[in-house]
Amino acid sequence: MACNVNVVHQAAMASAIGQPNKPSQRPNASLSAPSNSKPKSCCKLLLSSQSSFISGFSPSRPQTLTPFRSSRAQNFPVVGSAKAEPLRIMISGAPASGKGTQCQLITQKYGLVHVAAGDLLRAEIASGSENGRRARECMEQGQLVPDEIVVMMVKERLLQPDSKEKGWLLDGYPRSSSQAIALKELGFKPDLFILLEVPEEILVERVVGRRLDPITGKIYHLKYSPPETQEIASRLTQRFDDTEEKVKLRLNTHHQNVEAVLSMYEDITIKVNGSVNKEDVFTQIDSALTQLLDKRQATSESLAA
């Protein structure tokens, strides 16, 4: 009876591929079982699996096709687990709120590309370009640099391959609702907006005592983070906008604009106490980023399942 089923099956398969219905040749006697022996269990398994496989094509029972398992190697494509999208983070705060320090700690742990709008502006000023000259005039008066200057610099940096691959940490930008709207229109949306909050009297003290090493680019503070050697101390400079008069102008501008910016990102904003030591500040930020990554990884795994 098993042989009759096999012949019918071979005939059906031959007809399906357009080949003549030829009887199967008798195998070599030395390899075939005696005519009176019972069918092998592997033959039953193959027939049963093939019948099950073919029944999946029944028009009366539309189903998702699932190939039967076989001990032989199959050439089916292997689908890997989905890779989570890189993080896109914005961090904001008044001058000397500790953004630079926290950005360094964040990038060290999470590998994000640090994009500082202030550094981009200062590089433009140092180049002596017309945009740099206009930017310097605005900064000296404690005003925001025109959007058309800053937006394009930020856009170009965020579109660099390293930013797209590793994710980015946008430091000190946007500083106004118009800048936030411009970024949104360009397709840049953060996953998290971090706001550092520090009392104004502490901010002024931090700014006035801040010094820059022009060789290494490292920021020191005469009270909180003094230079390691006298040689370094002798070459430190004060940024032109780090005087008490200018920082108060900048703080006024910051307070006038921060609420408008927060309204654009209120559903993804966390407020962090920036007046404590840097380790405690980072603990607050690290907790939020870890939760964000865990949630994103869980989502990626569920989509890949």
Rank of each mutant, 00 (worst) to 15 (best):
G111Q: 04
G98E: 00
K83D: 06
R72C: 08
T101P: 10
F76C: 03
S92G: 06
G93P: 01
A82D: 01
L120T: 12
L105T: 11
P62C: 11
L87E: 08
R69K: 07
I89S: 07
A82Y: 02
P62S: 09
V78D: 03
G93Q: 08
N75G: 06
E85H: 06
T107Q: 05
Q102Y: 11
S81E: 14
R61W: 02
T107G: 02
D119H: 01
M90F: 15
F68R: 01
L105K: 15
T64G: 15
K83A: 12
G111L: 06
S97I: 07
Q104A: 15
H114V: 02
P86F: 08
V78A: 14
Q74C: 10
I91L: 05
G100R: 04
Q108I: 05
P86S: 08
R88N: 14
S81K: 07
N75T: 14
V79D: 00
L112G: 02
D119R: 00
G118T: 05
L112N: 06
T107M: 07
V79W: 03
P67C: 01
G80P: 15
A94K: 09
E85Q: 13
L87A: 13
Q63K: 13
G98Q: 03
Q102M: 05
V78P: 04
G100S: 14
C103K: 03
T64M: 07
P62L: 12
Q63H: 08
V79R: 06
A84H: 03
A96F: 00
K83S: 12
A82M: 04
K99H: 02
T64E: 11
R88A: 12
C103L: 08
A117R: 13
V113I: 14
R69L: 05
S92V: 08
Q104E: 13
P77D: 03
G118K: 10
Q104S: 12
F68Y: 07
G100T: 13
Y110E: 05
H114M: 00
Q74D: 06
M90I: 15
